[in-house]
């Protein structure tokens, strides 16, 4: 039931890429978000290190985020990371166990950047990119 409810939220709600206001980032482009979350270039526009955070792998919002961002399903994302992990290039985003943990990391760790349903955004976090349904 919870999974079904989460799926509905994932499908119908805007997702926002969020970061702490103190990071000094106003907005990100789609390519910049892709670069950070797919491990191509993890640097914020102000030059600071970006630390991407994924939702739990079972959370439907995670699949929805990558579907909206790059049009890929979870198997394709796993295949992508298999290539990078096993050629020693980079590692996937840190994985949070819950939405609350993502929010906690975003609030406490410099450079942490994650994605949330738009209605879960709270101060002092700000949306720097939006993925509409």
């Amino acid at each position: 039931m919870l999974t079904l409810a989460s799926s509905v939220i994932a499908n119908e709600t805007s997702l926002v890429v969020a970061i702490h206001v103190s990071a000094g980032v106003e907005t990100l482009t789609r390519d910049q978000v892709i670069n950070i979350f797919l491990g191509r270039f993890r640097q914020l526009p102000n030059g600071h290190l970006a630390i991407p955070i994924d939702q739990d792998s079972d959370h439907p919002i995670r699949a929805e985020f990558y579907r909206r961002l790059v049009g890929k399903n979870p198997a394709e994302i796993h295949a992508y990371w298999a290539r990078l992990i096993f050629s020693g290039k980079t590692t996937p985003p840190r994985e949070a166990e819950s939405e609350e943990q993502i929010i906690q990391w975003l609030m406490t760790e410099p450079g942490a950047i994650g994605y949330l349903p738009a209605d879960r955004l709270r101060e002092p976090l700000k949306a720097v990119f939006t993925l509409d349904p």
Partner: peptide, 29 residues
């Protein structure tokens, strides 16, 4: 030292060709 620079030393995969360093990982292609 930064997201822009990476130095690796040791035993490394061959990158003569694009994707050549992940040839053994069948799941990735």
């Amino acid at each position: 030292p930064s997201p822009a620079v990476t130095l690796r030393a040791g035993r490394l995969g061959n990158e003569f060709y694009m994707l050549a360093d992940s040839r053994l990982v069948g799941y990735s292609y």
